[in-house]
């Protein structure tokens, strides 16, 4: 794909994560494949409920279980030694979700930040305690004092003023933006090769959002790590990523470089997403929301999942034959019968 010169970090193949509920089975992620390359960034976009978070949770093996389970697929993780030598490939789906191996990957190889900075920290422990904890988990020979110094240092790097003082603050004493910075510090303190950011700015207001995006971008470059950036906001994802994956109801609908998604979007769903956001130039166009609402997650239809809301649907064709993800141009994949 776009980044063939970079070595691969994570290779997700045909991932299926289902939730088994009383009301039925939710196929939250239903055969998703993608790769993440060293130092590159992948944006994941789709309306809320499309399986973006569950994809990320599967990579960390933190899908709530029960009711959720990764029923099929592979998530191969390429682990590198500290010195830079290649160590091994592990399929994290084969690991015990509470076992030592996956725990050595969480926080160390992959850092993750979440949507809700207000609730993502324990209210009963200081920020510094919670950040330093990551160091103490992954670096056996680090002393408490060293871990604390590292936490202060990291708090400074993510732009928290007076880190010496705020290291002893409790989460409720910080604003939402400051908390998200603290969470970024926590995710990055062990120097992961991949940061997964699951809508980290959705709960923040616009000016803070811009600062946080700036910070993530800057840290990604300076630390040389890969980024998987999840959002429902196309403009934000475009800002953050080298390539973009568009998800709808557990499927990848389109996957291409950011330039291609912006200049030459193919899937009717991607086009619809485009029409529903204000244009970057600020032209006064009418915003057209995507018609209809997300179908019930329990529904399973024989044809294309977007059929009921698609403005280019071909009755009798699209609702009968499930489309497959096809590479229609180099590095540009789309799941739509219009291109088959």
């Amino acid at each position: 794909m776009a980044a063939s010169e970079n070595s691969v970090l994570v290779e997700v193949q045909d991932l299926k994560t289902y939730f088994f509920l009383h009301e039925g089975t939710v196929k939250a992620v239903d055969g998703v494949s993608f790769s993440i390359y060293e130092g590159r960034s992948l944006g994941v976009i789709g309306e809320s409920g499309c399986g973006k978070s569950v994809t990320a949770q599967s990579m960390m093996r933190i899908v709530p279980s029960p009711p959720g389970r990764e029923v099929d697929g592979k998530i191969e993780m390429y682990l590198w030694e500290n010195g830079g030598g290649f160590a091994e490939v592990v399929d994290v789906l084969q690991l015990k979700p509470s076992g030592a191996k996956i725990r050595s990957i969480r926080g160390k190889q992959i850092g993750m930040i979440f949507q809700e900075p207000m609730t993502a920290l324990s209210p009963l422990h200081t920020v510094g305690n919670q950040i330093a904890e990551a160091v103490l988990i992954h670096e056996q020979d680090a002393s408490k004092h060293q871990a604390r110094e590292r936490a202060i240092d990291m708090l400074g790097r993510v732009g928290i003023p007076q880190p010496h003082r705020l290291v002893d603050a409790y989460p409720h004493q910080l604003s939402g933006g400051m908390r998200q910075r603290a969470l970024i510090a926590m995710a990055l303190i062990c120097g992961p090769s991949l940061l997964i950011a699951d809508e980290p700015t959705t709960a923040l207001d616009v000016t803070i959002e811009a600062q946080i995006l700036e910070l993530i971008k800057e840290l990604q470059t300076s630390l040389g790590m890969a980024l998987m950036y999840i959002s429902h906001d196309l403009a934000v994802v475009g800002e953050m990523s080298d390539e973009i994956m568009v998800m709808y109801l557990g499927h990848v609908m389109e996957h291409a470089s950011t330039d291609d998604i912006f200049d030459n979007p193919l899937h009717p769903y991607t086009l619809a997403l485009w029409r529903s956001v204000p244009s970057i130039e600020g032209k006064l166009e009418r915003l057209i929301p995507i018609s209809g609402s997300l179908p019930s997650p329990f529904a399973s239809q024989p044809g294309c999942r977007f059929f009921s809301r698609c403005d280019r649907r071909m009755p009798g064709v699209c609702d009968a034959t499930p489309p497959s993800l096809k590479e229609v141009a180099p590095g540009h994949k789309v799941r739509c019968l219009l291109y088959e």
Binding site: G107, L121, S122, P123, A187
Partner: peptide, 22 residues
Amino acid sequence: NKQYVITARSKGLSEWKLVWKY
């Protein structure tokens, strides 16, 4: 099910320590 538990888990904390601490 609170977010702070998930955060702690994604740090790599063991389940037992996590539950008791938070």
